[in-house]
């Protein structure tokens, strides 16, 4: 039984991988950006777990900057993805403009809270 499950997992993994390579580069860039943001957040959480949450405002600020920008990137990916029927009428540039403005506001808030 175990062998069949590991064989199934491998087969699943392979199919996922091949499907992913089919995605356009733009989206891959966004994915990479999101992964980068999440990793940065994880490192900060690990640090907080070690030393405690002393400048809590700085911790929140750092983590939220990563998470916030990740969320905005995910929104951008959804809106820019051509296979997404919902956002067919939305110009990708428009989505990008929203992304940029939201990020700038996010970073203003982050810097204010950073201390």
């Amino acid at each position: 039984m175990a062998r069949s499950t590991s064989k199934d997992a491998q087969a699943l993994f392979q199919s996922l991988r091949s499907a992913y390579t089919a995605t356009p580069t733009t989206l891959k860039i966004i994915d990479l950006y999101v992964i980068y943001a999440v990793f940065t957040a994880l490192i900060q959480v690990a640090y907080m777990a070690i030393v405690g949450s002393f400048p809590f405002n700085s911790f929140l600020s750092g983590v939220l900057s990563c998470i916030g920008t990740a969320v905005l990137a995910v929104c951008l990916r959804i809106q820019v993805n051509k296979e997404n029927k919902e956002f067919k009428d939305l110009a990708p540039e428009r989505a990008f403009a929203d992304f940029v403005l939201c990020n700038l506001v996010l970073h203003l808030v982050i810097i204010n809270f950073l201390g």
Partner: peptide, 8 residues
């Protein structure tokens, strides 16, 4: 808080 500044 250097790591947090760095991450921001």
């Amino acid at each position: 808080a250097y790591p947090y500044y760095g991450s921001a």
